[in-house]
């Protein structure tokens, strides 16, 4: 028996479908509020995406599915086994449209910005990014609606994930530069990676195979 932590929210249906395509019984019911359910030899937990790496690192789950963004932000020590190919999005630095040319000019020339107030839900990723790009970064951590911050003068720019960029555009923001890409990752607990090597290897093989054959579907 292995325990799999699944991310609640936008990626849950895709994760459940990917497991189904790989031949696992994942009886996820989107209308149910059950957070723990069984499917054959697999137990599933549904957790907030940012908590999935914590559940896995602490051994509450053997493996988990989480976006690369959440994984990087967590800083938890887990094995990152596979790129599952869904849940794709980009991390970007964005700013009010009028400010973008000046910011791009400095960054494209390899220079450093003197000061920048950056609003974000991802302080670790933002801190790593700002090192070497901004001499005096001020990171403002928000829980949501980050796009609002530049419009009301709370921040000069934001670091956030974007899929299409439409939300940025309707809030008068534009991308200064892309920081990194994110997609769903299969992660494993460091102990389980060895002690439960066989079922985890099977999971990887089956998800890898279904990803190749059903890549266009999921």
């Amino acid at each position: 028996m292995i325990t799999v932590a699944l991310p609640a929210g936008r990626m849950l249906e895709e994760a459940a479908r990917a497991l189904g395509l790989a031949g696992y019984d994942c009886p996820y019911d989107k209308d149910s509020r059950k957070l723990i359910f069984d499917g054959g030899n697999v137990r599933y937990l549904i957790a907030r995406p940012s908590d999935v790496p914590v559940y896995v690192a602490r051994g509450a789950a053997d493996v988990g599915i989480v976006g690369k963004d959440g994984l990087s932000e967590s800083g938890e020590q887990v094995y990152e086994l596979m790129d599952l190919g869904f849940g794709r999005c980009r991390f970007v630095l964005a700013a009010p449209e009028d400010d973008v040319p000046a910011l791009k000019e400095v960054l494209d020339a390899g220079g450093m910005l003197a000061k920048l107030r950056i609003a974000t839900k991802f302080p670790s990723i933002t801190r790593d990014y700002a090192t070497g790009k901004v001499i005096r970064p001020e990171i403002i951590v928000l829980k949501g609606a980050v796009e609002l911050a530049p419009a009301i003068g709370l921040a000069d720019a934001i670091v956030d994930i974007v899929e299409s960029g439409k939300t940025l555009a309707v809030n008068g923001l534009a991308i200064v530069e892309q920081i990194s890409e994110s997609s769903a990752r299969l992660i494993a607990n460091r102990s389980s990676y060895g002690i439960k090597a066989k079922p985890i290897a099977d999971l990887m093989e089956r998800m890898g195979a279904s990803g190749r054959t059903g890549g266009g579907i999921r």
Partner: peptide, 9 residues
Amino acid sequence: AYAEGVGVP
């Protein structure tokens, strides 16, 4: 060396 369910050696 790892113990079952513990994420650190």
